[in-house]
Write a protein that binds this DNA or RNA. Structure first.
Lengths: 65, 65
DNA sequence: CAGTCATGTAAAGCACGCTTTACATGTCGA
DNA sequence: TCGACATGTAAAGCGTGCTTTACATGACTG
């Protein structure tokens, strides 16, 4: 599933390590998510939503619209 | 994570089998979700959102608000 | 009463989400 | 040039998300 994490993180001026800390995950997880290697769990998706102040629907694009 | 699937399914008058079909999962998955045994994956959360016509945020309550 | 429908439990199996650890590369400032 | 920081890759390990199959129970209906 596509996401805009890398771009949004850039807008905030955060490093991967900084974002990982805010999301309470490891940097590896941030890398994997940004690279689209897999989708976040629902709880993590909610945390991402809160960190960026955007609804989940604005952060992720389900393939079949 | 809490959800309102059982109630919403009831409002639509759907059986678990009917909802499972609409979500393209098995009935076991519907049962597990309604019982809160685990959270749906993000792609499934989007499908649930579409089936009920509600945003993900209205369907699931992350514990830490 | 027999049959069907809705709901539920149980268990095995596979792929994914996330962790931990380690190492490699490029860039930048002292 | 050395060190720190940012980004990236790799691999092993664990729990969870979802499937398949099977069986049990209660309610309703012919």
């Amino acid at each position: 599933m596509r996401n805009h994490l890398k771009q949004l993180r850039g807008e905030q001026g955060w490093s991967q390590a900084e974002l990982a800390k805010r999301l309470d995950v490891t940097r590896q997880t941030v890398i994997a998510l940004e690279k689209g290697k897999y989708d976040p769990s629902l709880p993590l998706a909610f945390r991402i939503s809160r960190v960026f102040g955007l609804p989940i629907e604005k952060l992720f694009d389900p393939e079949n619209p």
